[in-house]
Simulated assay, not measured.
Amino acid sequence: MHDISGKKVAIIATHGFEQSELEVPLHKLKDAGAEVHVISLEKGDIKGWDKDDWGQKVKVDHAIGEVSPDDYDALVLPGGQINPDLLRVEPKVIDFIKKIYAQKKVLAAICHAPWLLVEAGIAKGHPMTSYHSIKTDVINAGADWQDKEVVTDKGLVTSRNPGDLGAFCAKIAEEIAEGRHERRAA
């Protein structure tokens, strides 16, 4: 995995995030040298979903209102069914996602998290993947949905499911190491 020392990564999640989809990127990106913050709707802890039942709590570093997209080099959006469904109705979260995208920074979403890209109006015109159950939503939003492990388009990284976490994290680190993606239209 690429060395991304000195880079800052935000992970936005709330209750019901898929446990591995938050924890694996959190640890792998830290191991690659990044400073990684878990951001949620409020401070405290958020509880994950682990396959078919509630999982473990994860400490929140910052509430969404306390941070700025200007402070980060990348944003990771874990999936699970509950987490992105709750987040996509939160204006501060959608605004954060839009600003990261407009600043041409790395934006990564896995599993059901591409719902957030759809809500933010980012999917249109991009090759993307997602969990199969939201394929139609992604296509209807104007994306070129592809049945691949990981799909990358100028800093926009999407992945199908938690079985693809190694490739997902490696691609995030690679895109962060490349820097801003100036060819991408905001």
Rank of each mutant, 00 (worst) to 15 (best):
H2M: 13
S5E: 09
G6Y: 05
G6P: 06
K7D: 14
I11V: 08
I11E: 01
I11T: 03
I12W: 00
I12F: 00
T14V: 13
F17E: 02
S20M: 07
S20F: 06
E21N: 05
E23S: 14
V24S: 07
V24C: 00
L26K: 12
H27D: 15
H27T: 14
K28T: 14
L29W: 07
L29F: 03
K30E: 15
A32T: 09
A32K: 10
A34R: 06
E35M: 12
V36K: 00
V38H: 01
I39T: 10
I39K: 06
S40I: 00
L41G: 07
L41D: 07
E42W: 02
D45F: 13
I46N: 02
I46F: 00
G48I: 01
W49S: 06
D50S: 14
D53S: 14
D53K: 05
D53H: 12
W54Q: 08
G55F: 02
G55W: 03
K57F: 03
K57E: 07
V58M: 04
D61T: 09
H62N: 04
S68Q: 12
S68W: 04
D70G: 13
D73A: 03
L75G: 09
L75T: 11
L77P: 10
P78E: 09
G79L: 09
G80A: 07
I82N: 09
D85Q: 11
R88P: 01
V89P: 00
V89W: 10
P91S: 12
V93N: 11
F96N: 09
I97D: 04
I97N: 02
I100L: 11
A102R: 14
K105A: 10
K105Q: 07
V106I: 12
A109M: 05
A109F: 04
A109S: 07
C111F: 00
H112W: 01
A113K: 01
A113M: 07
P114T: 07
A120R: 01
I122R: 00
I122G: 07
A123S: 13
A123V: 09
K124D: 12
G125S: 04
H126D: 13
P127G: 01
M128Q: 08
M128D: 04
M128W: 03
Y131D: 02
H132P: 05
S133R: 13
D137R: 13
D137L: 11
I139R: 05
N140L: 08
A141P: 03
A141D: 05
G142E: 03
A143G: 04
W145I: 03
W145S: 00
Q146A: 09
K148S: 08
T152Y: 04
T152E: 15
D153S: 13
D153C: 11
G155Y: 01
L156D: 05
L156I: 15
L156S: 08
T158L: 01
N161T: 13
P162W: 01
G163H: 10
D164P: 01
L165Y: 02
A167I: 10
F168N: 02
C169W: 03
A170W: 11
K171T: 15
K171A: 14
K171F: 04
A173C: 08
E174R: 11
E175W: 14
E178P: 10
H181F: 05
R183W: 15
R184L: 13
R184C: 06
R184S: 08
A185R: 14
A186R: 13
A186C: 11
